[in-house]
Nucleic acid binder design. Sequence first.
DNA 1: CCCCTGACGACGC
DNA 2: AGCGTCGCCAGGG
Length: 117
Amino acid sequence: MSKIRAKKTDSSFFQDVYAVVRLIPFGRVTTYGAIAEYLGTRLSARMVGWALNCSHTQPNIPAHRVVNRKGMLTGKHFFATPTQMQELLEAEGIKIINDQVQNFEQVFWNPSKELEL
DNA sequence: CCCCTGACGACGC
DNA sequence: AGCGTCGCCAGGG
């Protein structure tokens, strides 16, 4: 699959983030940095997380599949309940201990690698 | 129009 | 190896 949008132009780059997040396969997770890198804003992973913060306005955004580069569920506090993010991930077969994704490398999904491969 | 904030990441100490 | 700071960009007050 080709790049969603090589560069942010007319619309907000938020749309790009949403598009990538929607592409995350079931049972997989990715990182803010990976998405940021894919969008070309490698140095600004914060924007990705921020975009996800606004993702609650967009339907069908599996934001629970996005964690930081350590595999930590930093955004769980932004869900309806602090445990919802973990619940959703565990429902996909992802083991989480102490807000840390187990076998993170195994479930990690890199858009730059998977989408361009 | 200026200032602050924000779900991160890399480097420095 | 753990904690602290800076950089980064965009949106909101």
